[in-house]
Amino acid sequence: MTKSGHIFIIDDDDSMRISLSRMLSEVGYTVDHYQSGINFLKESLPISPAVILLDMQMPDMSGVELQQQLLALGRRTPIIFISGQSHPHQIVSSLKNGAIDFLFKPVKLEDLLIALSKALELDKQQLVQLSKELDIKQCFLTLTPREKEVCSLLVRGLLNKEIAVELGTVDATIKVHKARVMEKMHADSIQALVRMYLEADLVNA
């Protein structure tokens, strides 16, 4: 039975990479493996839910360096580091940058499967959140420029009459704009509108 999730293995140790790939395939995961971070960046395609099993010490690019590049690219696939030996600052840096776990070689299958399950669940949650953010942004794009202004001021907590003064119009006009904003954004309250605005970072949209 195929498990729900894809595993990317990145390790310059051929025997470790092939062994992990075979082991995880046997328990039902789909697996791709790469011998370097550079190969991964060139060849891999984003998949979700997925996890990256990343060796810390590699000759062309360290695990932390690859992690930083992925963050810069906006790829948020959860990372589990595996390493034979690592300096404490590397471990701290990887965890600060969002690594899910850090396992030392030889990796115990039970520990690995627990870490993978946790990471895959996180990626599923991230996918749901990303989909929600995209839906909110699509709704926001349907607003007219004036409705976007009204939306921003509503989120800031201004009342209709205060928004009217701010925009140089009358209260009745703002009521119409507000009703259209709430309808287009599918918000049933100002609190819901504020929550969506913050979740999707609409201040920068």
Rank of each mutant, 00 (worst) to 15 (best):
P145G: 08
V27S: 09
G28N: 07
D11I: 01
D60E: 15
E65R: 09
D171P: 08
D201L: 08
I136R: 08
V92P: 03
T77E: 05
L134A: 11
Q67W: 00
A179T: 03
Q35V: 07
I114H: 14
K124L: 09
L70Y: 06
A179L: 08
R195F: 14
L73Y: 07
E147M: 11
M1A: 12
D60S: 13
K137G: 01
G37R: 05
S21L: 03
M61F: 10
G98D: 04
L202A: 04
T2M: 13
D60C: 05
D14K: 08
V64Q: 05
V176E: 15
D14N: 07
L95G: 05
V203N: 09
K132A: 09
S44I: 00
I82S: 14
P106A: 10
D32P: 07
P46A: 11
R76K: 10
T169W: 15
S4T: 06
Q129P: 00
T77C: 09
L53N: 02
M58L: 04
Y197W: 12
D32F: 12
M16P: 00
L198C: 06
Q69N: 02
P106H: 10
V181Q: 10
K148F: 05
K42Q: 07
V128Y: 09
A164D: 06
A192N: 12
Q90C: 05
G84T: 09
D188N: 11
P46W: 11
K178G: 05
N39Y: 05
M56K: 05
E147Y: 14
L53V: 00
R75Q: 12
R17D: 01
E65K: 12
A192Q: 14
K96H: 03
A172F: 13
K105M: 03
K175I: 03
Q125D: 10
T2V: 11
M185I: 00
G74K: 04
A99Q: 06
Y29R: 04
S4Y: 10
S86R: 10
I136N: 04
S94E: 08
L130I: 07
G37E: 03
S93N: 14
V64I: 13
L134S: 08
Q90L: 07
L127G: 03
E26H: 08
R146G: 03
M182T: 00
Q57F: 04
V203D: 08
Q67N: 02
G37A: 01
P88K: 12
K178P: 00
N97E: 07
D123Q: 04
Y34V: 01
L66S: 05
A164L: 06
L122M: 07
K184T: 01
P88Y: 10
L193G: 01
